[in-house]
Computed example of a mutant assay.
Amino acid sequence: MFDRGEVREILVGAARAGNPLTYSQMLGLLGHRFTRPLMRQLCKVLDAIDEDGAASGEPGLAVLVVRQSDGLPGQGWFASRSATHPDLPLDWEGTEARRYIKYRQREAFDYWNKR
């Protein structure tokens, strides 16, 4: 459904701009309205992009796609990374989660601004 290259290009642009995107904004940039089924499909693509990037030594990009309500990725983002990121906070909401996400976003911003 979603072209991995197109999604990655949008994420790299967001990283270079230092600007996270909401799920709704991301779907809009891809020509869709927000629906939960489309969001789930998008999340699968985001996970695949992060897996490919990690294999190349890049920081994650999916961390740049967040909920409008609190600026955090959804619970699925945290759950899908729990085995590979031992530093993840135990709670996927709240102050600790926000601090962790800001750190990971900064990592992506810094990396892509040097490229």
Rank of each mutant, 00 (worst) to 15 (best):
T22I: 00
T84S: 06
Q105K: 05
R115L: 02
R8P: 06
E93R: 13
R106K: 07
F109P: 00
G13I: 09
Y103R: 12
P20C: 10
G53T: 03
P37V: 08
D3E: 12
I49Q: 00
P86E: 10
L46G: 02
V12G: 02
S82I: 03
L64T: 00
R4Y: 13
W112A: 01
A79T: 14
N113P: 01
L30F: 02
A54K: 08
R99A: 14
R33C: 12
E6K: 10
G5N: 13
C43S: 12
L27C: 02
D47C: 15
A62G: 03
L11C: 00
G60Q: 00
A17W: 03
Q25W: 01
W112V: 05
Q25I: 09
W112E: 06
G60T: 04
S80K: 12
S80I: 13
A14S: 08
V45Y: 01
G13T: 08
E93V: 05
A54H: 14
G31L: 09
C43T: 13
P37I: 10
V7G: 03
L72T: 04
M26E: 03
W112G: 05
L64K: 11
G13A: 12
E107Q: 15
G94C: 02
R67T: 02
R33S: 10
M1W: 06
L21W: 13
R67V: 01
G94Q: 02
G76W: 02
P73M: 04
V66M: 13
E6N: 13
S69D: 14
D87Y: 05
M26L: 11
D91N: 09
K114P: 08
H85E: 12
Q41W: 09
N19V: 13
D50E: 14
R81V: 05
A15C: 09
P86C: 14
K114C: 14
R98Q: 07
P37E: 07
P59A: 10
E58G: 08
I10W: 08
G5E: 07
G5L: 09
G74D: 04
L30S: 01
L72C: 07
P20Q: 04
P86K: 15
T95G: 10
L72E: 00
F109S: 02
R33K: 15
W92R: 06
A48K: 04
R99I: 14
D70H: 14
L61Q: 01
R16I: 13
A54F: 13
R4M: 11
T95Q: 14
F109Y: 11
E107N: 09
G76Y: 03
Y100D: 08
M26W: 04
A14G: 07
S56Q: 15
V66K: 00
S56N: 15
L30V: 04
M26I: 03
F78D: 00
A15I: 07
E51G: 13
K44A: 09
G5V: 04
A14Y: 07
A17M: 10
